[in-house]
Lab assay of single mutants.
Amino acid sequence: KSAVKALFDYKAQREDELTFTKSAIIQNVEKQDGGWWRGDYGGKKQLWFPSNYVEEMI
Rank of each mutant, 00 (worst) to 15 (best):
K1I: 12
S2N: 14
S2W: 12
A3H: 12
A3D: 12
A3W: 14
A3P: 09
V4L: 06
V4P: 02
V4S: 05
V4D: 01
K5Y: 10
K5V: 14
K5D: 03
K5E: 06
A6R: 03
L7T: 07
L7C: 13
L7S: 07
F8E: 09
F8A: 11
D9M: 05
D9Y: 06
D9K: 05
D9S: 10
Y10E: 01
K11E: 13
K11M: 14
K11T: 15
A12D: 01
A12M: 05
A12H: 05
Q13G: 08
Q13M: 11
R14V: 07
R14Y: 09
E15C: 14
E15N: 10
D16C: 15
E17C: 08
E17I: 01
L18C: 05
L18A: 01
L18G: 00
L18D: 00
L18E: 02
T19R: 01
T19Q: 06
T19H: 04
F20E: 00
F20T: 00
T21H: 12
T21W: 10
T21E: 14
T21A: 11
K22V: 11
K22C: 09
K22Q: 11
K22H: 07
S23C: 15
S23Y: 14
A24K: 03
I25C: 09
I25D: 03
I26Q: 03
I26L: 06
Q27K: 13
Q27S: 12
Q27H: 14
Q27L: 15
N28W: 04
N28P: 01
N28G: 06
N28A: 05
V29Y: 03
V29T: 02
V29A: 03
E30T: 15
E30L: 14
K31F: 09
K31I: 09
K31W: 05
K31L: 05
K31D: 04
Q32A: 14
D33Y: 10
D33Q: 12
G34I: 05
G34F: 06
G34W: 04
G34Q: 07
G34C: 11
G34M: 06
G35N: 08
W36M: 09
W36R: 09
W36F: 08
W36P: 02
W36Y: 08
W36H: 04
W36V: 02
W36N: 03
W37N: 02
R38E: 00
R38H: 01
R38V: 07
G39T: 00
G39A: 00
Y41E: 03
Y41A: 05
Y41F: 11
Y41V: 04
G42D: 12
G42Q: 10
G43M: 08
G43V: 07
G43F: 06
G43T: 09
K44Y: 12
K44G: 12
K45M: 13
L47I: 02
L47W: 05
F49N: 00
F49Q: 01
F49I: 02
F49L: 03
P50R: 05
S51T: 08
S51N: 07
N52V: 11
N52Q: 11
Y53C: 15
Y53H: 10
Y53W: 07
Y53R: 07
V54E: 01
V54R: 00
V54F: 01
V54P: 00
V54K: 02
E55D: 08
E55F: 08
E55G: 07
E55S: 10
E55K: 09
E56Q: 09
E56M: 08
E56K: 06
E56S: 09
M57A: 09
M57Q: 09
M57I: 15
M57R: 07
I58P: 14
I58V: 14
I58R: 12
